[in-house]
């Protein structure tokens, strides 16, 4: 484990540094936006029983929709690839 960490110290360092930069940026936005405490007393998003499946259905729908959005792009990528093959 330690050797894996030391072998991959550079990518891990880059990822952590990038994450810190992102967090710092959003902390700055938070400081500038002067947001108020959220009122979540007694609220709960959790669903019970069979209704709890709705959470997973939502994820499946969103993932599916994302994949659908990517279809025209993948078609373009495939066309791009075949045209560059024609050139070579």
């Amino acid at each position: 484990m330690t050797s894996w960490l030391s072998r991959n110290a550079v990518p891990i360092g880059v990822v952590v540094f990038a994450a810190v930069l992102v967090i710092a940026g959003f902390e700055l936005l938070d400081a500038l936006s002067s947001s108020e405490p959220a009122n979540s007393e007694g609220e709960s998003d959790e669903l019970e029983g069979i209704a709890s499946i709705a959470g997973l259905i939502k994820v499946a729908l969103f993932l599916g929709f994302g994949a659908l959005i990517a279809r025209p792009l993948r078609r373009r990528v495939a066309a791009d690839r075949s045209s560059s093959n024609d050139e070579t």
Binding site: D30, S33, A38, L63, G64, F65, G66, A67, L73
Partner: peptide, 25 residues
């Protein structure tokens, strides 16, 4: 818990599911 981070968590969470769908595709 502030409204900024609560809204950000909900919005980014939902958008990210779409993004992961695109990434997978």
């Amino acid at each position: 818990i502030t409204s900024f981070w609560a809204s950000l968590h909900n919005a980014s969470g939902n958008l990210l599911i779409l993004g992961v769908g695109i990434h997978l595709a």
